[in-house]
Every structure is written in C-alpha cells, then in structure tokens.
Amino acid sequence: MSDESVATRVINVFAKFKKMNPEDIKMDTSFDELGLDSLDGLNLIFELEEEFDIMVPDDKVQSMKSVHEVVEGVEYLLAHPEEQPTNAVRPSA
C-alpha cells in the first residue's frame, strides 16, 4: 500500500484508463461525463480491483457510477475484507 489516499489512487486509475490529466477528474465526475459505457465501467472496476487487490461484488458495481461512489465503495471493501471472496485458486484439474 502506498501513502496516497484512496481518492488519489482512484483518480489516478481513472486518469490512466481515460488517458486524462488527473487534475481534470473531480470527485463528483460521473461515468457518463467521462464517456464510460457499461463495458468500460466493467474494465475500470477490474483496474481498481488490481490497484487495491480487492474483489468487488456484483451488487456493489451497480452503486459505482461516479468517482466519489467508487472511492466510497473501495474504502468500504478495504475496511470489510470479509465481504470479498478471496482470490481464487485453480482447483486440481
């Protein structure tokens, strides 16, 4: 974990994904405003899972439609690791 705040790291993930300047992304910026459709949203959630080493449950994805909603969601999952399925391991073939 870096010392950066969750919000900064989330914004950096958004900025990298959209090839934008992080300063242009505000907490109240919505997925729509960033031109993210449903499939882009899924990919972005995947990038966030990688960044924070978390697993976002399907029902949480529905409530992540803006930068601040994503930050709140990530902070919640970091504080409640029991609500994430653990990283999957391939069972024996």
């Binding site: 697993m55 449950p57 399907d58 399925p85 653990t86 990283n87 999957a88 069972p91």
Partner: peptide, 8 residues
C-alpha cells in the same frame, strides 16, 4: 464439476 467456492 469445478471448485467455485471462491467465485462470485
């Protein structure tokens, strides 16, 4: 048929 215990 597959161990899905860790899946969503």
């Amino acid at each position: 048929k597959v161990d899905v215990s860790t899946m969503r």
